[in-house]
Design a protein around this nucleic acid. Sequence first.
DNA 1: CTTGAAAGGGGGCGCGC
DNA 2: GCGCGCCCCCTTTCAAG
Lengths: 173, 173
Amino acid sequence: MLKMRLALRATFESKAIMGKNLGSPALPGIDAIDRELIAVLASDGRIAVSELAKRIGLSAPSTAERMRRLETQGVIRGFTVDIDPRALGYTLQAIVRVQPLPGQLHLVEDAIRRIPEFVECDKVTGDDCFVCRLYLRSIAHLDDILSRVTERAATSTAIVKTTPIERRLPPLA
Amino acid sequence: MLKMRLALRATFESKAIMGKNLGSPALPGIDAIDRELIAVLASDGRIAVSELAKRIGLSAPSTAERMRRLETQGVIRGFTVDIDPRALGYTLQAIVRVQPLPGQLHLVEDAIRRIPEFVECDKVTGDDCFVCRLYLRSIAHLDDILSRVTERAATSTAIVKTTPIERRLPPLA
DNA sequence: CTTGAAAGGGGGCGCGC
DNA sequence: GCGCGCCCCCTTTCAAG
């Protein structure tokens, strides 16, 4: 078993050497076992440590210590539940790009933060200063929420029809 | 304790009646206690059932049964871990809007699904058919990934500078 | 990193209320 | 919906290799 682990680790590291160099492969201190651990936790965040240990081929104490280390390092920021927004009455999702009017940037950002229907917001380069995701109950609800920012910003709204990719982990290699 | 619960529930329900009617408030079968339970699990997805029970003022068996019911109903879709992408070497995030060329829509969607750096993707109304989030190691990496879709689609890219709102729950009321 | 043992706590189940 | 008792498993900590 020990041999298998070492072989697997070697495989992972050698992959990082292959291909184009497109930037730092991963933070030092995150090894192949850590990445396996993260992948398992991503698919089942409530898995028991003992079960997790079996999946990644380690003992339970070592697994628990790795989890603690990843949490204190800030690699693991927390654990959460994935909720279907429709179950909460949010039958509509919109992606809204927000361009604050001159001098209104900070006020717009504060307003967005305070409106809980904005469930995601990134400040980006380019003309569209903010790109946001909204959870909404209806078109009327969308109109109501947007009216709170249109005094200070131009918005352009796209209604979500389907979601081909739900938030997922990037490659861990 | 029972009285307190009932009072709290009354508070929640009355809130739903106030204000404009902007659509269905929530799926039937999701009550105020369920919403509290969801809020706690959202902030700590690995909390012990016994501890969760204390927080929402129920007994452990009742709490466990609610969790099971919410999972089988599909309200709770799963549990996961929140990982800092920088810890995995992804020091760059981009929001990319993708407009497939005529006749290329399905091929573009398939291509996006297969590229794991696309960690989020929504198909939306309007000219920008897809709005996607990418995790990247460098600008060179961004260029490399985008070159895989630019044969079949026009793209417009915005680099994420900051994230004012990390994915959060909408109002549960 | 491993195994093994011991102590404490939590989870699941079934009961009666 | 609650509380109780039961049993098992899990977690944690320690030792020693």
